[in-house]
């Protein structure tokens, strides 16, 4: 799983990145966390409010500084179908 945090480096983006790290760790996910700071790349995802959170190239949240629990909910939602098909 690749988790991208979109943001030009404002304090809110750093907070979201920290939340994402904690959430991935607590869920025991093999996730690579990538920071996207280039404005061209950020806007290519179509978001108008930073920070944005992208999981496996899908925008799951934007304009919100999520806490670790909120990120966990989103990650579980995204990764749930994968787990089922793996069974």
């Amino acid at each position: 799983m690749i988790i991208k945090v979109l943001g030009t480096g404002c304090p809110n983006c750093l907070k979201l990145e920290a939340s994402a790290r904690i959430a991935a760790k607590e869920l025991g996910l093999e996730a690579e966390i990538v920071k996207v700071t280039k404005i061209e790349e950020i806007t290519a995802y179509g978001i108008m409010r930073t920070p944005g959170l992208v999981v496996d190239e899908k925008v799951v949240s934007y304009g919100k500084v999520l806490n670790p629990t909120e990120v966990k909910v989103l990650l579980e939602k995204v990764s749930a179908p994968g787990r089922l098909s793996g069974v």
């Binding site: 404002c10 809110n12 404005i39 806007t43 108008m48 409010r49 930073t50 304009g63």
Partner: peptide, 16 residues
């Protein structure tokens, strides 16, 4: 609502 750190994504979001 928008914070000043979002003014660029907003600008691009509008023009695009």
């Amino acid at each position: 609502p928008f914070c000043s750190c979002s003014s660029i994504p907003l600008f691009i979001g509008f023009t695009s």
